[in-house]
Design a protein around this nucleic acid. Structure first.
Length: 585
RNA sequence: GGGGGCGUAGCUCAAUUGGUUAGAGCGCUGCCCUGUCACGGCAGAGGUUGCGAGUUCGAGCCUCGUCGCUCCCGCCA
């Protein structure tokens, strides 16, 4: 009794045909004289009917069916009687009248029902049941489609899919790594790659020209809703290109993905926004441009203010900025305190505010403002009845960060509708940043990013002014991916390592020596990008959590509840690896 | 490492100010039911209120500790 159709296939056109289905018992409706079973597989559901007048023995056997039994049925496709068509089911015009039923496997009563959402830990423990749920099956299918269209697209664009090693070398800068002891080399370790970055650049030197990979990456950092310790990137690298080529290539990919996954057309080219503009207007380098509440700069207006908090922020080189949460003046004192606590958790010293209610500015600070300052606020922030103005007076970066985050918080509270797909490229990032605590420069992204050519002279004088040829693709406030045109001249790369980043020569040689050497043998100009496949799929599924698009994810504590890993190992295994556990956890 | 939320029946949740025998829906078991699709009807079983201490005449509720799930900050070149 091999199946002839899946459970979302039979339609009116099949009426009268013999058909066999196999799947799980999704629902049982036993009316006494007649039994209906809704049979489910990953594609959908079909109603099958057991009628004693048609086939008594299978009707009798059907009495014993329970949720999640695995069965095969053979019968004839029948138009449902008038008035019993189910418009909610794609197969709802027909049903399968069963001649023969085979119970392929029974099932214990499942720990949760397939049609409601159980607790996350239970779902993860019984992930194989969770994945049977139609919503999760749909996510798996969508992820497959995205991967498939990605491969097809890059194949059509002359890319080669090349696998790079999972056992890699430890590169201590950046994220914490998972280490793998190397048994045959006692005391030495591999690390799992945070990304295939260095290999893909080597592939360009190898003449591969266009590389892509759907690559597993590993980072031993604390988890978030959008961060798992192992995750997947759509990773690519191209030779003989500039930034414009990359923008066009990725826009083409995303057009194809949206078409395949959602059947929607997205407009190209995506807007470009310099990093500094993103920060000034939205306070983040991955702005959600689907709504306003933009940051407004008031530094000049309060440069000579008699309100000391603002004045001293400006005097010490900081800024005064504000956002207008239109319609939030109704916030209670308790809610304002809550907002203040939130702002403090983001690094603010406090949260100055103005509530515009009953034609009045209600605020503990407004009495310090001059008429001209009030006028500036009114015009720049377009203040109207019902507004809530939130201020940040601090160092520029802190003010950006606090208001950028508060902007999202108030948008949430105002329940601002955020629809549509707002893609954009954020460009012109600073190549180099300065770490005040450690008193040294560091690469904003990674040390292989090429400077914008005309800014190269600034490397020696004012490195933080140098723009990098880096680009991030942002969608609705989510960083989908980022990349850069790379340095391909060994002398420039060496200069960045040694003169700007001040990596000691022997350390640079040990970590990147092979790379510098490779570049001396004819490295083509090249650049690449990596997109987070998990985040991409989560957005396409409308899920806030990437666990929903990963078949077997880990909990927030980085544990797999289904297999109970990580777990302790046998002492012999440790001995083989020359590892002794003698530090308290 | 820090902060918030949650933990009560198999599942999702309720339980007033700390006060009688901890409830509901779904699921489960049995019986009835020939056009259901959230099938319906009748009956029933099912609880160490995560765990451990403490306060109290009395704790699901308060306190402390601990475990688990989750969200956020730090962290994630």
């Amino acid at each position: 009794m091999k199946r002839t159709h899946h459970c979302n296939e039979l339609r009116a056109q099949h009426v009268g045909q013999k058909a066999s289905l196999a799947g799980w018992v999704h629902a049982r409706r036993d009316l006494g004289g007649i039994v209906f079973i809704e049979l489910r597989d990953r594609e959908g559901n079909t109603q099958v009917v057991f009628d004693p007048q048609h086939n008594k023995s299978s009707w009798e056997l059907a009495q014993s069916l329970r949720s999640e039994y695995v069965v095969a049925v053979e019968g004839v496709v029948r138009q449902r009687p008038e008035g019993t068509v189910n418009p909610k089911l794609p197969t709802g015009e027909v049903e399968l009248l069963v001649h023969q039923l085979a119970i392929l496997n029974a099932s214990e009563t499942p720990p949760f029902q397939m049609d409601e959402l159980a607790n996350e830990d239970l779902r993860l423990q019984y992930r194989y049941l969770d994945l049977r749920r139609p919503a999760m099956a749909k996510n798996l299918i969508l992820r497959h489609k995205v991967a498939k269209v990605t491969r097809d697209y890059f194949d059509a664009n002359r890319f080669l899919e090349v696998e790079t090693p999972i056992l890699f070398k430890s590169t201590p800068e950046g994220a914490r790594e998972y280490l793998v002891p190397a048994r045959v080399n006692p005391g030495k370790f591999f690390a799992l790659p945070q990304s295939p970055q260095q290999f893909k650049q080597m592939l360009m030197v190898s003449g591969v020209d266009r590389y892509f990979q759907i690559a597993k990456c590993f980072r031993d950092e604390d988890l978030r809703a959008d961060r798992q310790p192992e995750f997947t990137q759509i990773d690519l690298e191209m030779s003989f290109i500039d930034r414009e080529d990359m923008y066009a290539m990725i826009e083409g990919l995303l057009v194809a993905v949206w078409q395949a996954a959602r059947g929607e057309k997205i407009p190209t080219p995506f807007p470009r926004m310099p990093y500094i503009e993103a920060m000034e207007r939205y306070g983040v380098d991955k702005p959600d441009t689907r709504f306003g509440i933009e940051l407004v700069d008031l530094t000049k207006d309060f440069a000579t203010s008699s309100f000391k908090v603002f004045r001293s922020a400006v005097d010490t080189g900081g800024v005064v900025k504000a956002i207008n949460a239109k319609g939030l003046a109704c916030a209670t004192q308790g809610q304002i305190e809550q907002l203040t606590e939130t702002a403090k958790s983001f690094g603010a010293k406090g949260l100055a505010y103005i509530k515009v209610e009953a034609g009045e500015w209600k605020s503990p600070i407004v009495k310090f403002f001059s008429d001209s300052e009030k006028a500036a606020l009114t015009s720049k922030l377009k203040i109207e009845e019902g507004d809530l103005i939130l201020f940040a007076a601090d160092k520029r970066e802190v003010a950006w960060d606090v208001l950028g985050r508060m902007r999202l918080v108030v948008a949430e509270q105002l329940k601002i509708e955020r629809t549509g797909w707002n893609f954009l490229w954020v460009v012109d990032f600073p190549l180099i940043s300065f770490d005040k605590d450690r008193n040294q420069y560091y690469s904003t992204h990674h040390p292989f990013t090429a400077p914008v050519a005309e800014d190269i002279p600034l490397l020696a004088t004012d490195p933080t002014k140098v723009r990098g040829q880096h680009y991030d693709v942002v969608l609705n406030g989510v960083e989908l991916g980022g990349g850069s045109i790379r340095i391909h001249q060994p002398d420039v790369q060496k200069k960045i390592f040694e003169e700007v980043l001040r990596i000691p020569a022997d350390v640079a040689e040990n970590r990147f020596g092979y790379m510098l050497q490779a570049f001396r043998y004819g490295a083509p100009p090249h650049g690449g990008i990596a997109l987070g496949l998990d985040r991409l799929c989560a957005i396409l599924c409308g899920s806030a959590n990437i666990r929903d698009v990963i078949a077997f994810p880990k909990t927030a504590k980085a544990v797999d509840l289904m297999t109970n890993s990580p777990a302790e190992v046998e002492p012999k295994q440790l001995r083989d690896l020359h590892i002794k556990l003698d530090l308290e956890a």
